[in-house]
Design a protein around this nucleic acid. Structure first.
Lengths: 166, 166
DNA sequence: CACGATTAAATCGTGCACGAGTAAAATGGA
DNA sequence: TCCATTTTACTCGTGCACGATTTAATCGTG
């Protein structure tokens, strides 16, 4: 009925950055700030990764493999907090692109090992400039980024422990 | 080839929260911290919104309408940074749930006005406790949340201005 | 050895997000 | 007035994310 009823006792008022032009009516939702920041990152990555033919989640998987090759699907899922039903199709797409190969483990036939192909390894060169571009696009200094990351890690840890098995 | 080559001059070292158990190999990516926080929020909202039969993006749309009813699809898209191709099916699902109605504007036949149904308005009562639950699940104080939100707003603004039309 | 329980992975269905393309209404000059 | 342009919305195809279910391999314990 009424026009502006804010649940401000919960998530905080935070009317700081309300510019007249932008419709920031969900200012007091911290989750919305995270949601929007994630969308902004995705869109930035989309333009940067277009040359490589990768999506952002695919880039994360490739980054893991560039750092340490030969991982199981489960290991990748643990690192990215993703389930098999997300990863299996995604890794199959990377396989179709010729970047990774999926082979059953000899010792344990349940396990699928994901390894880089020559082409997948070579792609790392073309991706080397990306972290630098991202860091610059944030417009924040290294200490600021470090601090923000620490706060987000705390937030994420709290959210998982609270929502998971309370 | 080599085992650990970190692009740490760009996105910051940030080896602070590396616990032995959790596989945090993407620590130095600020984007990854945002990505993971967003996933954590989504999963928390999923459990909270299950009773209402809403998804998180649907909840955001409903929240906008609860604050001010009768919005065009464009207004909703501006508020959430979403395109028509995302919103049109989503709002049609809300319509199928009986929560909103979509009617063409009399003056401008291009415009579709989205308004709450009686049922949609009534749903606000059941959703009233959610912001409080979310705020508590973050485990952060109101000043901390306010500060974190301000930093994310800066980050998002920088990302958009840099990646958009440079 | 046998057999229930656990684990790794895959499949299916739903919904969000976006690029590309389409359609129709409204607008703005020449 | 007329027509190109803009605006609003929609459709289609692809990929991510997850709940629910399924399959196959391995483990554990009697």
């Amino acid at each position: 009925m009424s026009d502006h009823q804010n649940p401000r006792e919960s998530a905080g008022p935070a009317k700081a950055s309300a510019r007249p032009g932008s419709d920031t009516e969900l200012d007091d939702f911290i989750c919305f700030a995270v949601y929007e920041s994630n969308l902004a990152f995705n869109n930035l990555y989309r333009s940067l990764l277009g040359d490589l033919g990768l999506t952002y989640p695919q880039y994360l998987v490739m980054t893991l493999l560039w750092r340490r090759d030969r991982r199981t699907v489960r290991e990748i899922g643990d690192a990215l907090s993703l389930e098999y039903n997300t990863l299996t199709p995604m890794i199959k797409r990377l396989e179709a692109l010729g970047l990774v190969s999926r082979v059953r483990d000899e010792q344990d036939q349940r396990v699928v090992n994901v390894t880089l192909t020559t082409e997948g390894t070579a792609l790392q060169e073309k991706a080397r400039k990306i972290p630098q571009c991202i860091a610059e696009a944030t417009g924040l200094s290294v200490p600021e980024l470090k601090d923000l990351k620490a706060r987000l890690d705390t937030l994420r840890s709290n959210l998982r422990s609270g929502g998971g098995q309370e």
